[in-house]
Amino acid sequence: MREMMIVETRDAAEHRGPARSAELAIGMHHEGVPATIFLAENAVFAARRGSESPLDRAIAKGVAVAADSFALKERGIAPHELRKGVAVSDVGLIVDKLVRGSSVMWR
């Protein structure tokens, strides 16, 4: 496995799965498999700074984190409100990763 992307769609405040996804991404990175987390749908709530989030640890450990611009706009989350290290992107990034041969896991 060359690279991994986790597409996370769940609200981290409601589910514990997103925290596990973040830990998995950190673990993959540690194993030498670069990992990206793509936040879509309600998962983008975690992109908003101001709350504790396992994303901060993932970002600190080298995991790339991006949020779907469509979902951010849908929820009124402006780019300046994002936590540090979260990039604004779109579903094209998922296609990019698939083209690069990444293993993409949809949660």
Binding site: T9, A40, E41, V91, G92
Partner: peptide
């Protein structure tokens, strides 16, 4: 589920490329 729309957006984006 919103997953359907997000997934179809990915399919559409891939086809457009």
């Amino acid at each position: 589920s919103s997953r359907t729309t997000t997934a179809l957006r990915v399919v559409d984006a891939a086809l457009k490329r």
